[in-house]
């Protein structure tokens, strides 16, 4: 477009910036939609579950070394921090499981790519339903077992 307007007078180079310019020279975060954020969550929960399984296999393997050591480790787990950790673990696994089904449907159901957004919200709703059942029960257990 050729502008027919007269050139605007250049503003004098201001000494004080009018607005704070972003510092990130690497650029802004890409603003993806449900698909991208579900993938990010899937990655984070996946890596988290992997580290849990790593620790879980090691502590279970202790029973082969000595049952006393195993009991000691399990007793060590019985504190409110680990209780909240279990809550986070279940939250991660439930999301990862439901979203995994969504990804399978995207890959193998010919209408999967068309309905991916709806399926994402279905995953979130299913996650909320399961967590609504589990979270209060777990929190009550934590509070009962570890009274202040």
């Amino acid at each position: 477009m050729v502008s027919l307007r007269p050139a605007p007078k250049l503003p004098p180079t201001s000494t004080s910036p009018r607005l704070s310019l972003p510092k990130a020279p690497a650029g802004t975060v890409y603003r993806g939609h449900e698909g991208m954020w579900s993938w990010v969550l899937h990655r984070i929960t996946g890596v988290g579950i992997f580290f849990f399984l790593l620790v879980h296999i090691m502590d279970t393997a202790l029973v082969r070394v000595s049952p006393q050591a195993y009991d000691g480790v399990i007793a060590e787990y019985k504190n409110p921090i680990m209780g909240l950790g279990e809550l986070a673990l279940v939250a991660a696994i439930v999301f990862h499981a439901f979203n995994g089904l969504r990804i399978i449907l995207i890959d193998f159901w010919s209408f999967g790519t068309k309905h991916q957004r709806g399926m994402f919200w279905a995953v979130i709703i299913a996650w909320l339903v399961v967590m609504a059942g589990f979270a209060p029960r777990q929190l009550i257990t934590i509070l009962e077992e570890f009274p202040r």
Partner: peptide, 17 residues
């Protein structure tokens, strides 16, 4: 299957599909 490509396409191609 992050669907970023489908949403970015200026021609509306169903890329992920």
């Amino acid at each position: 299957t992050t669907f970023n490509c489908t949403e970015a396409c200026p021609r509306g191609i169903q890329i992920t599909k």
